[in-house]
Amino acid sequence: MRVALFVTCVNDTLFPDTGRAVVRLLRRLGVEADFPRAQTCCGQMHFNTGYRDEAVRLARRGVAALRGYDAVVVPSGSCAAMIREQYPKLAGPSGPFADAVARLVPRTYELTEFLIDVLGVTDVGAYFPHRVTYHSTCHSLRGVHLGDRPLTLLRQVKGLELVPLPGAEECCGFGGTFALKNADVSAAMCADKARAVLDTGAEVLCAADNSCLMHIGGMLRRQKSGVRVMHLAEILCSTETAGAR
């Protein structure tokens, strides 16, 4: 099986630890993922903000870069949802681009889907002795429909104490450019989310999407709350001998 890592532009640029964790985690499970160097951004920011032409250009690039793999692993529910839900709409009903999208879509997996549905593992042999709460993130929940996959994986992590996050299914207020265009509403939503996280008493907030974590984490840090945010992949990569990073 030829597996590609679509790391996403946000992880590539700002959160390389997440990408490294995915590579190491997969390697531990016997999968050597490739990193197609031509990949950049899935185009979601342009698409969601109303810049369709740019989004189409980036989608074409992305599809070309990921061609020929049996599986594409994406450590972001949001970007996986962009490929699976929006690329077919951007590509239209027919033509070479539509055909390429049609091949890519069923091969695109968010990380937890790949672990559970393709590799068939729920215990990835991780060790993480901390109190953790999980935020489901909108696109992981309602875009790619991860369901309880992330929680299933977290429950198998040795030493990890999982505490439920009340209102986990509610949006943190990130929403890409929404956080800038409607900064006040976005901040109000984020403040409620941060409060819910603090109320759990967790040391670590984890999610399957770094952009939401960057948002909530930015506020938690500004508040000097001491709660760390970590991508799910980094927790799953941690072992007794090697830390998360």
Binding site: D12, L14, L180, A183, A191, G218, M219
Partner: peptide, 24 residues
């Protein structure tokens, strides 16, 4: 400018020394 909407209430993430692709 418009980016202040973020930094008014939230810290920015630290820019890493090395991007993922540089590490790779």
């Amino acid at each position: 400018g418009p980016l202040a909407g973020w930094t008014d209430t939230r810290d920015l993430p630290e820019v890493p020394k090395e991007s993922f692709r540089e590490w790779w």
